[in-house]
């Protein structure tokens, strides 16, 4: 029989591994979503650079494909693990975030396309960084890293800013997702 100190250590060991399993499952799903959105954002930024007048249609298409893809990833995850991850509440939360972003960028701010390119990225990365406070440091690192690179591009990169954002935001999300899968 063991004493209470050893029993406490065993329970602490259990708590530690449970936390790691939870974080691993969150990273597993989040990484798939990040790779999906990273690919879309990369393509959309390149398309915006090539056809700047079609920007609104391009980004509307990104949202449609991104939401459909998120539901598909969630359905696949549910079939594999029994856990639904992107449900109607997540969808509504996403719509509210986008609506608030549009309100700030177009109604209150009248942002230029360049300002919008920086704003949307920083806005979403803020939520990554906040999520990291609960779900793991990888989210904080990705959120802050992409935000910093976005600001560098906004202030120092000229006409090629959408291309910079393709690699920083799109590529950053893809690399961040791959990094999370290895964590």
């Amino acid at each position: 029989m063991i004493d209470s100190k050893q029993a406490s250590e065993a329970l602490a060991e259990i708590d530690d591994i449970v936390q790691r399993v939870r974080q691993s499952r969150i990273y597993d799903l989040a990484s798939l979503m990040m790779i999906l959105w990273g690919g879309l954002v990369f393509a959309a930024n390149v398309a915006t650079y090539l056809w700047p007048r079609q920007g609104y249609y391009i980004w509307f298409a990104v949202y449609v494909f991104g939401i459909a893809g998120s539901f598909a990833v969630s359905a696949s995850n549910r079939a594999r693990t029994g856990v639904r991850t992107f449900d109607i509440r997540a969808f509504i939360a996403f719509l509210l975030l986008v609506a608030f972003g549009y309100f700030c960028g177009l109604v209150l701010g009248h942002f230029t396309p360049r300002q919008q390119g920086a704003f949307w990225t920083i806005y979403f990365m803020l939520f990554y960084a906040l999520a990291g406070l609960w779900f793991g440091n990888a989210f904080v690192a990705i959120g802050l890293g992409i935000t910093a690179l976005t600001l560098i591009g906004y202030f120092y990169i000229g006409e090629a800013f959408p291309l910079w954002m393709a690699f920083v935001n799109g590529g950053g999300l893809i690399l961040g997702g791959l990094w999370m899968r290895r964590s």
Binding site: E13, I17, T81
Partner: peptide, 24 residues
């Protein structure tokens, strides 16, 4: 104990791959 704690943290009938269990 670690193996059982990790598996028990998952929903029923959900498993972990050997490589993931090794990392954990």
């Amino acid at each position: 104990l670690k193996i059982m704690a990790a598996l028990n943290a998952l929903p029923a009938a959900t498993g972990l791959e050997f490589s993931r269990l090794k990392k954990l």
